[in-house]
């Protein structure tokens, strides 16, 4: 093999190696998505429009829970939609879910406005999921009302604890 060919291959290989590094850095650069800034007013209008669309389905009264068997369309997972834990999901398998800052909670809330043992979510005999406030300082909100007694969580409604919003999904 001639000296020239080997030199070309040697330098070519180094170039290819660095090319890989540069392409990898480009991938990292395009991986920084940044943040999206939306106008409040338009965001609210969009949300209102969506609410109106969903109104017909949500308008009919909730069918009372039929006792003794798992209802069709019962929620299967708990989703955190706002707050520092956004995106966390927990499967609902009939177990009690405790929420709070205490580290042995099922969902450890990293939220200044949550108490150590803030609330718990558990299924009653009919398979309906109930939320109960455990004497928290800042309260637990179901939709916009502060909880005073254990209450069932209707589908599509949000539970707010401090800055964390929780929903039950199918």
């Amino acid at each position: 093999m001639s000296e020239l060919t080997l030199t070309v291959m040697r330098l070519g290989f180094l170039a290819v190696l660095w090319l890989f590094v540069i392409v990898a850095v480009q991938v990292i650069r395009s991986d920084l998505f940044g943040t999206r800034v939306t106008q409040r007013a338009t965001a609210r209008r969009a949300a209102d429009a969506r609410d109106r669309q969903q109104q017909p389905q949500r308008g009919r009264p909730q069918a009372p829970a039929r006792p003794g068997r798992q209802r069709r369309g019962a929620p299967t997972k708990l989703v955190i939609t706002e707050g520092s834990l956004t995106g966390t999901t927990v499967a609902l398998q009939g177990q009690t879910i405790t929420l709070g800052r205490a580290h042995d909670s099922t969902i450890v809330l990293d939220d200044d406005y949550a108490s150590g043992r803030h609330a718990r979510i558990y299924p009653d005999r009919d398979g309906q999921w109930i939320i109960e406030d455990l004497g928290s300082t800042n309260g637990t909100y179901l939709d916009r009302a502060r909880l005073t007694a254990p209450a069932p969580i209707p589908p599509g409604s949000a539970v707010r604890i401090g800055k964390t919003v929780i929903e039950l999904r199918k």
Partner: peptide, 12 residues
């Protein structure tokens, strides 16, 4: 990196 689910009923 999994995208967060959007709130289905955004509380204002």
């Amino acid at each position: 990196r999994r995208p967060a689910p959007s709130p289905s009923n955004p509380t204002d």
